[in-house]
């Protein structure tokens, strides 16, 4: 992955040098970088690795998934807070996730705690089970589980490509 980035910068640098301008212009460098992206996209299968911008793309996608989940679940929480009779049933339930490694686990817990309606209260010692406190277990359990699933898939796309 870093090899591809280095080659891309090399191509951009070579491009600026071969243009032989009287000063260093950033626009020329960026143009060279774009051409490098094109060359790398055509040649990336020879490196035996995935095209490195795919990972950047899936990171951006994860960000947008997170923002949309944030907006949806915020609306749900606002509805619950502002309803005249407070008919919520809070509770703690377990969830067994399929993340591997410290980074994936931390990212999932962070994103889950950031989305309203669910807080990761405790992680089991082996790190396999989350204990999640939810605002309204019976009603929002399905929505919480659904958003966990989408987060898991998006995180795996970033870390495992």
């Amino acid at each position: 992955m870093p090899a591809q980035l280095l080659i891309n910068i090399m191509i951009a640098l070579l491009w600026t040098l071969l243009m032989d301008e009287d000063a260093f212009y950033l626009s020329t460098f960026i143009g060279g970088y774009l051409i490098g992206i094109g060359i790398l996209f055509m040649m990336h299968r020879f490196f035996g690795a995935k095209f490195y911008l795919l990972r950047v793309y899936s990171t951006i996608r994860l960000l947008f998934i997170f923002i949309s989940e944030l907006a949806q679940s915020s609306l749900l929480i606002i509805k619950q807070i502002l309803s005249p009779k407070l008919n919520i049933k809070p509770g703690i339930f377990t969830y067994e996730h399929s993340m591997e490694g410290a980074y994936e686990l931390t990212t999932l817990a962070l994103l889950l705690t950031l989305t309203p309606g669910s807080v990761v209260m405790e992680v089991s010692p082996d790190g396999k089970v989350f204990y999640i406190h939810a605002m309204d277990v019976e009603e929002s359990r399905d929505t919480v589980l659904r958003s966990i699933k989408t987060f898991e898939k998006a995180i795996m796309e970033v870390t495992r490509g």
Binding site: I77, P90, P116, M135
Partner: peptide, 25 residues
């Protein structure tokens, strides 16, 4: 709304939802 939630909800755990979450948005 999140300040309102802190006043209205019954216990620490549900209040922390209002305090930390709605305020992130």
């Amino acid at each position: 709304i999140s300040a309102f939630g802190i006043l209205r909800l019954p216990d620490v755990y549900t209040r922390s939802h209002a305090a930390t979450k709605s305020s992130t948005l």
